[in-house]
C-alpha cells in the first residue's frame, strides 16, 4: 500500500470546547489506484488529506506513506517524505507568484533532486503550457494555473498524489479538462491518487470512492 491511514482521530478546539473532526477513520490506497474522498462541507475531508500529507499530525492513529509512519518522524523528515513521495495539488493552485511557469513546473523536482531526467518542455507540451513557460502565474487563467500545479506535483514522479478539490476554483468546462489531464497523467505515471471532492460526477470517474460523514467513513 502506498498510503495507509489507520484509526485516525483528530479534534480541534472551538469556541465552545473541542470538536471531533475525524473519529476512527481507516483508509488505504494501493499503487495505481485512484480514490475519491467525498463528503459534506465540514465532514473532515481536507483534514484527512492534510494528515495523509503529513501537514498535520493526528491525535490518535497512524498514517503511513510508503511504509513510513509519519507521526514518528521529525518535522524535517516529514518534509522529506512530502518532497520525495507526495505530489500535492491544491484548490487555490498555490503557485509561487514570483517564479515563471517553467520554474514553478520544475520546482518540486528540483527540491527533491530529481530534475535530472525531467524534460520541462515535454511536460509543458503535455499540459498545453508550452507557450507559457516564461509567463508568471498572475498572467495565466485559473485553468492554466491549475495545470501548472498538476505538472509541478507530477514532475518528480512521486508514488502518491494528494489533490484537494483541484477543480473547485474552476468553471465546469475548464474543470473537466483539468480533471481529464490529471487522471490521464496519474494513470500514465502509475501513481496512487487520493482526491478530495464534493462532486459526485467527478468522484464517479475514479476507481474507488469513500464517503466521509460526521468524521467517519461510511
Amino acid at each position: 500500500m502506498v498510503l495507509v491511514a489507520d484509526d485516525i482521530w483528530k479534534s480541534f478546539s472551538s469556541g465552545t470546547g473541542r470538536s471531533e473532526v475525524l473519529r476512527g477513520v481507516s483508509l488505504s490506497v494501493a499503487a495505481g489506484e485512484s480514490v475519491a474522498l467525498t463528503g459534506e462541507s465540514g465532514s473532515g475531508k481536507s483534514t484527512l488529506l492534510h494528515l495523509c500529507a503529513g501537514l498535520d499530525v493526528p491525535d490518535a492513529g497512524e498514517v503511513r506513506v510508503g511504509g513510513q509512519a509519519l507521526a514518528a518522524l521529525s518535522d524535517a523528515a516529514r518534509a522529506k517524505v512530502r518532497r520525495d513521495q507526495i505530489g500535492l495539488v491544491f484548490q487555490q493552485f498555490n503557485l509561487i507568484p514570483s517564479l515563471t511557469v517553467g520554474r514553478n513546473l520544475s520546482f518540486q523536482a528540483r527540491l527533491s533532486g530529481r530534475e535530472g531526467g525531467l524534460r520541462i518542455e515535454a511536460l509543458a507540451e503535455r499540459l498545453g503550457l508550452e507557450n507559457l513557460l516564461e509567463r508568471y502565474p498572475e498572467e495565466l487563467s485559473g485553468g492554466q494555473q491549475q495545470r501548472v500545479a498538476i505538472g509541478r506535483a507530477l514532475a518528480a514522479g512521486p508514488p502518491l498524489i494528494l489533490a484537494d478539490e483541484p477543480t473547485g476554483s474552476l468553471d465546469e468546462a475548464t474543470g473537466d479538462k483539468v480533471m481529464d489531464l490529471l487522471l490521464e497523467l496519474v494513470r500514465e505515471s502509475g501513481a496512487a491518487l487520493l482526491m478530495v471532492t464534493h462532486s459526485e460526477r467527478l468522484a464517479a470517474r475514479l476507481s474507488r470512492r469513500v464517503h466521509l460523514r460526521a468524521g467517519q467513513l461510511e
Binding site: A53, D75, A79, I86, F90, N94, I96, F107, L111
Partner: peptide, 16 residues
C-alpha cells in the same frame, strides 16, 4: 505567507 506555506507543503523543512 502563502509562499512559505506552499514551500513547506512541497517538502521544505522549517529549518531550511
Amino acid at each position: 505567507r502563502a509562499m512559505f506555506r506552499t514551500l513547506r507543503a512541497l517538502g521544505v523543512p522549517l529549518n531550511g
